[in-house]
Structure formats: structure tokens, C-alpha cells
Design a protein around this nucleic acid. Structure first.
Lengths: 216, 216
DNA sequence: TTGCAGACCGACCGATCGGTCGGGTATAAA
DNA sequence: TTTATACCCGACCGATCGGTCGGTCTGCAA
């Protein structure tokens, strides 16, 4: 059982650490707390991860990977830019909802990078690489739509920012968002609503031609 | 000069604390660091603020007030919903740009509320009250546009979330955003660009232009 | 001149931080 | 049985945390 327990412990640590980091941020979480939540002694954490920073980036990488797995097939698929963008939004939101702590962790990571000068930390690389890849593909998708004349001539990086805000921020907004919406953000109804609202906004807001939906 | 110095010190503390909290979050900042940056001894902080939490919420309240002062005249003015929304976006972005740390602090505050169960902390009230007021007015503006038939029948709370994401998140995204955009987010060119892109998206995406299927 | 209050500070407090160390236990190969 | 390895732990380390305490300095009012 040693091997199974080992894998189980490592996963368990990543699991509880993800929740804690998402809730209180890197500095707000103590390793003692992580260990307790994982049902281990604090020293045991260092058997699986050599430092708090490494644990943090391992958690971040795992989150990125899960999102990447969801988005990759969609981004790689063929189809019109409109259809692919819709599918990407659905997939991203599905990924964020499936693991509710992801959104917060992801958004926090964009700020907390400054916290420990992530540029110089080699542990940060894998997660950043996945993120950069996703962003690049998303930007490429938008660019393709613009060049094909399907989308308006928007600034695709700005559009990417708007998309991140509309998805990651929304599902990271916690109590504030729930109060504003007036219902649990993760309820299937509100998730569907979010997808529909966003896709509709983009459908109208990105369309290169005056809307004439009835024709087709 | 005692009184002037006192006021000066208090402001100085708020100023440096705002920058630090924005950069590293509540838990990531030590009071020693704040005191040093303000040119004071650590004990002196407690002469002006009775605890770290109170200092944090004082900082947050100040940020909210500055944004409120910028937005209030715009939100209260008369005019068509389209024009008022455009003006609100300009004003909000101006406010976020004028005090570059505001965006991050604001966005962080939505998460870090969970950190210390802000519901029960009386210090949090003023800031939350201002925020709630602004959100309410923004939602009302959108609702008015929808009811007037100028905007599509969108979910106004969801639209508010999208707006926050497109403004606050964007200017809080730091290095990530700059890398994505490829230029300083706060440069006058990129600020103007952000406003234009967002207003264009909304102009196309919110317009209630009856598709008039009979026409085409 | 005295008294008082606001501003400020050094020294200190208990608690907690990330991390180390030495050792204990179980399994599996030799 | 011995050896190696993975896993786990209690005790401990120096540093730092938020916060307190007693006291100094300054300007002002009486």
C-alpha cells in the first residue's frame, strides 16, 4: 500500500493546497494548514515538495493542465471561427466550473506572479508555458476570424483580455458575483446563462456584418 | 507643524500601504514594510490605525471613494443610455488609470474578502457600501437601456460582470496583460485603445437593432 | 512654568512562519 | 537477515508576524 498511499498523499496535498491557495492566496496559507487538511504532518509535505513555492507551482501547473486538456481538442478542431470561438468559450467555462477553485487560483496567479518575481523562478515555467500556449491559440483564432472577414477588425489581444475577464474573472468573483447575480454562480442554470450571455454578446459584438440572423 | 505632519503621515501610510497591498495582497505585506516605506517606526502605525485590518479597509475605502467621485457625476447625468454607458466606461477607466494600483487592489478585495470573513467586520462596511452603490447604479443604467429598447434584452447583472472584467481586470492584469498587449497598459495610446475597443464591442454587442428579417 | 495631547519610537511579547533534522516504520529486493 | 527506499513524524531552528508597552519629543494653552 505504500506506493498507492504515496500517490494518494501527493494528490491529496495538491488537492487541498489548491483549495487553500485559491481561497487565501500564497502568503495567506501556512504549510501547517495544508498538512492538517491533507491529514499529514507538516514535515511530510517536504517529502513530496521541496518548498512552498514548488508546491504552489505544482498546484498551478495541475490547474493549467486540466484547462488545457479541455481546450486543446476544441482549439485544434476545424470549423468556422465563430463556431470554434463558441466551442472554446463553452469548454473554458466547463473547465472552470468543473474545478470551482481553478478560476480564483488562475486569476490570483496573474497578480501573485509579482509577489515572488516569477520571472526568475524555474518552477513557474511549465504553468506559464501552458498558459502562453492557450493564449496564443486563442489570439490566433480571433486573428483568423478577423482576417477571414468574419469578425470586425478588433484588436485581438484586447479581445483576449475581455474574454478572460468575462470568463475567469466571473467565476472567480465569489460572494460578490453571487450577490450581484442573485444566484449561485455554479448552478447549472447560471452556468448556461453565462455561456449564452457571453456568446450572444460576442456574436453581436464581433460580427463583421449587420446582424441578419434570419437569412441563414 | 504637528498637525500638518500628522495628516501628512496618515496620508503617507495610506499611500504606501495601497501600493503594497495591491502588489502583494493583505497577507503578503508586513507592517514593518509599510512603516519603512512610510518613513516611520512600526509602532507609529498603530497611532493612526488600530490594527492591520483597519488599515487595509481604510486603504480600500479611499480607493473606492476616488472611483466613486469620478463616476458619480457621470452616472447621475442625463442622456441616452448609450451615451451614459460610454461616459461611465471612460470615467471608470480614467479613474483606474489615474491611480494605477486601484485596479489590482479592487480586484483583490473581491477575493480577499473571504480571507477574513469580511461579512462580520464592521471596518469593511464603508467600502462595500460605496461599491454596492456603484454596482447598483451601473445595473440600473443597463436596465434602463434595456427597458427603453435601446439595448438587447441582456441579463444586466451578467453584463455588469462582463464590464468589470473588461475594465478592472484588464488594468489589474499587470505583466501578463502587458506581455499580451505588447505595450504598457497605462500608456495613453493603450488606454485610449482599451476604451475604444470596449465601447465598440458594447456598441455592436448591446445594440437592439431589430434584425428586421422582413427587410433582407 | 507647568500641564497636556499628539506624534513618534525602541524594545519587547507570544505566536507562527518556512524549513531542517534525526529517527521510526513498512515494503520489497538481495 | 540485511539493505535500500519510500513515507511519515515530533521536535526544533531562526526569522518574522501583528501588536503592546513605556517613554521621549514637540508645540500649545493656561
Amino acid at each position: 500500500m505504500s506506493e498507492a498511499a504515496s500517490i494518494g498523499s501527493r494528490e491529496k496535498i495538491l488537492e487541498v493546497a489548491e483549495a487553500l491557495f485559491a481561497r487565501r492566496g500564497f502568503s495567506g496559507v501556512g504549510l501547517r494548514e495544508v498538512a492538517d487538511a491533507a491529514g499529514l504532518g507538516k514535515s511530510s509535505l517536504f517529502h513530496h515538495f521541496k518548498s512552498k513555492v514548488q508546491l504552489y507551482f505544482a498546484v498551478l501547473e495541475r490547474v493549467m493542465q486540466r484547462i488545457d486538456e479541455r481546450l486543446q481538442p476544441v482549439l485544434g478542431a476545424a470549423g468556422s471561427p465563430v463556431h470554434r470561438l463558441d466551442a472554446a468559450i463553452d469548454a473554458l467555462i466547463d473547465a472552470l466550473v468543473e474545478q470551482p477553485t481553478s478560476a480564483r487560483l488562475l486569476l490570483r496567479s496573474l497578480f501573485e506572479d509579482d509577489d515572488f518575481a516569477s520571472d526568475s523562478l524555474p518552477e513557474a515555467d511549465p504553468a506559464e508555458r501552458i498558459l502562453a500556449g492557450l493564449i496564443g491559440q486563442l489570439d490566433g483564432l480571433l486573428r483568423a476570424g478577423v482576417e477571414a472577414g468574419v469578425f470586425r477588425k478588433v484588436s485581438t489581444p484586447h479581445m483576449v483580455q475581455t474574454l478572460i475577464g468575462a470568463t475567469v474573472y466571473h467565476f472567480a468573483s465569489g460572494d460578490f458575483g453571487e450577490t450581484l447575480i442573485g444566484a449561485p454562480l455554479l448552478s447549472s442554470e447560471q452556468v448556461r446563462r453565462r455561456k449564452d450571455e457571453l456568446k450572444a454578446l460576442l456574436h453581436h459584438g464581433l460580427a463583421a456584418t449587420a446582424p441578419a440572423p434570419s437569412g441563414g
